[in-house]
Amino acid sequence: MLKVENIVTRYGAIEALKGMSLDAQHGEVTCLLGPNGAGKTTTMFTIAGILSPHSGSITLDGNDLTHQSAPAIVRKGISLVPENRLVFPEMSVADNLAAGAYCRSRSERTAINQDLAEVFDRFPQLKERREQLGGTLSGGEQQMLAIGRALMARPKILMMDEPSLGLAPLIVDEIFKIIQQLNQEGVTILLVEQNARMALKVAHKLYLLEQGAVTFEGSPTEMQQNELIQRAYLGAGAD
C-alpha cells in the first residue's frame, strides 16, 4: 500500500536517511524500531512531505507522493500523530479535532460531523472535555486527542510517531490497546516506537532502522528469534 523505496534525506550536509525502504501492507501495523538518531522521525517527516527527499520514491497505492507538499499528502490519505502529541494548547478539544479535518472540503461536512461523533464515541473523555483547552488535558488525554485529530482527516494510513513517549505505563498499555483496536477496525498503521516489547505485540511487520538504513526486516517472531536483536533491543535474559 505505502511503498518507500531507497529514499535519501539530508539536513544540509548531513545524510539522515541513506537509502531507506519500507513497504506497509493494507490493514497491517508496520513498525519502525531503532535507536535515537536512526532516522525514524526523519522517515515520517519525509513521507508526510515536511521534508523533501534528495532521491528515492514514495508511493501510496501506486500514486507518486515523492515531492508533493504536506497539504497534498494529507489530502491523499496520510496523516500523522506527531511525536510529543503536539496538540494545539490554546484551542478547545473540539477545535483541535476540527483542525484535523482542515484538508477535507466543505462538501464533506456531514461526513466530518459523523467522524467527529465516532471520535467522541471512541474517546468519551474527549467528549466530556470538548470545550476544554488542549493544553489543560493530561498526557494520555492529549495522546487520544492527537490520535482523534489525525483520524479526522479520514486517513488511508495513520502514522504514529512514538505514541508511548513520556506516558505512564498504565496509559501506555491503554494507548496500545487503542492501536490494536484501530487496526482491527481496518486502519492501516505505520508506527515508530522505542518501546520494542509493545511494538512486538501489535506489529505485523517490523523494520529495524540503524544510522539511516534498514538493517533488519521481518515478522515479530523472526525478530524475536534473531539473537543479535534480542541482545541489543529486547534485553535478552531479563525475562
Binding site: 497534498a72 503536539l86 494545539f88 483542525a99 482542515y102
Partner: peptide
C-alpha cells in the same frame, strides 16, 4: 470560520498546523 481556525492553529502550534496540511 475555516480560515479563522487555520489562523488560530498556526498561531498556537505552527509545526502541528503544518501536519494538519495547513499552508
Amino acid at each position: 470560520t475555516r480560515p479563522g481556525l487555520a489562523l488560530r492553529s498556526v498561531s498556537d502550534n505552527p509545526l502541528a498546523s503544518a501536519y494538519m496540511g495547513i499552508n
